[in-house]
């Protein structure tokens, strides 16, 4: 294991940011710390980097106890949400910073900087100042700067959080490809489940200072440990006291044994998809299906329907924490 976090607790005043967290992060993989804002994931990342210190617990990086090491001795690369570019230095100087601190020979620094700028596609911007770059370019520069010192682990704190949707998507794909090339153990923090599911090899779900589940994207999606993980990873609705995904509900116009009876109160068409709101004795249920499916079914507002979870569907006991978003 590359990073071992044991029994880490962190408080800010009365607020418990992390509560006895234990996580092991595998070597060479891309791991996402996923969770809602304020859930403690950024704090955990900063504790790994040494930018914050844990109240209790220990951090081991590649087998070395790093708990009381200052950040500059941990050999980690850190990429900040707001880039933290050195505003008074050119792009090349920014990337060279860590190498110059380590007093590497000049020609080696020049060569390495060129190599890294090539890697992040910023070669032609080497002599620009950071304020002449776009947000996406700045973040790529920050990434090159962090990679320059050949860190044991690369830590990214909401790296794409400050960028607009399109650039975010591009950089996300690019990070995945970059990681396949560089293979450095990488941990990134995100509150965007889509980003985590798409990019990460492994996801650690953190909420209210606690680890809810650790696993591959498939494991998390298919075998959610609890209602929180299930609802955080995608839309859910509550059917007969169990949480289920809206597209995993089957709808029939005739009674089916074990099915829940209800009335369609609303039909909302969004692109290829249709969302039905069905009033049942246990409350409103949201059902998602394709337009074609609905047409074949022949249901409309006011229809009496019978609902049941599809065969093989993942369900978890409980009620949906998050109201299923219905576009209005």
């Amino acid at each position: 294991m590359s990073i071992d976090i044991t029994g880490v607790t962190k408080r800010f005043g009365d607020f418990v940011a992390l509560d006895d967290v234990n996580v092991s992060i595998p070597t060479g993989q891309l791991t996402a710390l996923l969770g809602p804002s304020g859930g403690g994931k950024s704090t955990l990342l900063r504790i790994i980097a040494g930018l914050d210190s844990a109240d209790t617990g220990s951090i081991r990086i590649e087998g070395t106890d790093a708990t009381s090491l200052p950040p500059q001795k941990r050999n980690v690369g850190f990429v900040f949400q707001h880039y933290a570019v050195f505003k008074h230095m050119s792009v090349a100087k920014n990337v060279a910073f860590g190498l110059e601190i380590r007093k590497r020979p000049k020609h080696e620094v020049t060569q390495r900087v060129e190599e890294l700028l090539g890697l992040v596609h910023l070669s032609q911007f080497a002599h620009r100042m950071p304020n002449q770059l776009s947000g996406g370019q700045r973040q790529r520069m920050a990434l090159a700067r962090a990679l320059a010192v050949e860190p044991t682990v690369l830590l990214l704190d909401e790296p794409f959080g400050a960028l607009d949707a399109k650039v975010r998507k591009e950089l996300r794909d690019w990070l995945r490809r970059l990681h396949d090339e560089v293979h450095v153990t990488t941990v990134f923090v995100t509150h965007d489940q889509e980003e985590a599911l798409e990019v990460a090899d492994e996801i650690v779900v953190i909420n209210e200072g606690r680890v809810e589940q650790i696993g591959s994207p498939e494991q998390l999606y298919d075998e959610p440990a609890n209602d929180f993980v299930m609802s955080f990873l995608g839309e859910v609705t509550t059917l007969d006291g169990r949480i289920v995904r809206p597209h995993d509900i089957e709808v029939e116009l005739a009674p089916v044994p074990g099915a829940v009876e209800g009335t369609v109160t609303r039909v909302l068409r969004v692109g290829f998809e249709v969302k039905l709101t069905v009033a049942t004795a246990g409350g409103d249920v949201t059902v998602a299906m394709t337009r074609t499916h609905l047409r074949g079914l022949g249901a409309d507002e006011g229809s009496r329907v019978w609902l049941y979870a599809a065969k093989g569907a993942v369900t978890v006991a409980g009620t949906a924490v998050k109201e299923t978003a219905v576009a209005g």
Partner: peptide, 9 residues
């Protein structure tokens, strides 16, 4: 903080 993480004392 970025400078510290890059090894600067």
């Amino acid at each position: 903080q970025a400078a510290r993480s890059l090894g600067a004392n």
